[in-house]
């Protein structure tokens, strides 16, 4: 899922300081699961914003609603009535949701979250980055551990000379992905596969090829 974290409430408040009626739109997708932009977080943020603004002598009215998904026109269109009277929209979705709302509504739309990465939960309250979205998966070559995002240098023929005691040179809190890859390949009896020199990556499949698009004609309607 997409992992996102809330911005500081003061930063969000500053984005809508001149608005009198603000719609806070949560998302029931990934950000609900990672506890940053679901129904509960949306209501808390609305209350915090109201309190701040009242203390400043500039009260604000809030509307809260949580969309099923903000990354789908179907659910975004359903917000028409909700945001009708608002002079700004605060989206508690990932960057995708913010853009869908901005595209749909002729209003000031601002992000309440910083979209961090795609990953999963380690334990409740801890999420870890796992995929670099490079568009050309190499996990079959690296024992199921992604060197693109989990190695701080995205090295395909690692580990670099900064790997020591299983940790990355950038921090003792960061595992060296290539140590993990080595250990895993060793336990699978496939160390010989690491002797192949991995060629340079074709980054056109990644962000470097420009904004990406996925099309499945077989499921398109009409």
């Amino acid at each position: 899922m997409i992992i996102a974290q809330q911005k500081q409430i003061k930063e969000i408040a500053a984005m809508v300081s001149d608005c009198k009626k603000v719609a806070l739109i949560g998302c029931a997708g990934c950000v609900t699961v990672c506890l940053s932009g679901g129904e509960k977080e949306t209501e808390i943020m609305a209350a915090a914003l109201r309190i701040m603004r009242k203390l400043e002598g500039n009260p604000v009215e809030t509307i809260t609603f949580t969309a099923t998904r903000q990354c789908d026109p179907e659910y975004v269109e359903a917000l028409d009535g909700v945001v009708k009277d608002a002079d700004a929209i605060i989206s508690l979705a990932c960057g995708v949701g913010v853009q869908y709302l901005a595209e749909r509504f002729d209003k000031w739309v601002v992000p309440a979250l910083d979209t961090n990465f795609i990953g999963g939960s380690k334990v409740h309250g801890v999420w870890e980055e796992k995929c670099g979205m490079c568009g050309d998966c190499v996990l079959h070559k690296t024992g199921g551990i992604c060197p693109i995002i989990r190695c701080s240098k995205s090295i395909l023929n690692g580990p670099c000379g900064g790997s020591q005691y299983g940790k990355c040179e950038i921090s003792k809190d960061v595992d060296c992905a290539w140590q993990l890859i080595y250990d895993r390949m060793k336990s699978l009896g496939k160390l010989d596969k690491l002797m192949a020199i991995q060629p340079p990556k074709d980054w056109t499949k990644s962000r470097d090829g420009g904004p990406r698009r996925a099309v499945r004609e077989d499921v398109m309607i009409g």
Partner: peptide, 22 residues
Amino acid sequence: GDHQKFGNHPSSKNVYDVDSMQ
């Protein structure tokens, strides 16, 4: 190359388009 975290521009972006082997 050492990670930029250690230097005087820790907020810069690193490249690593190719690695040293490549």
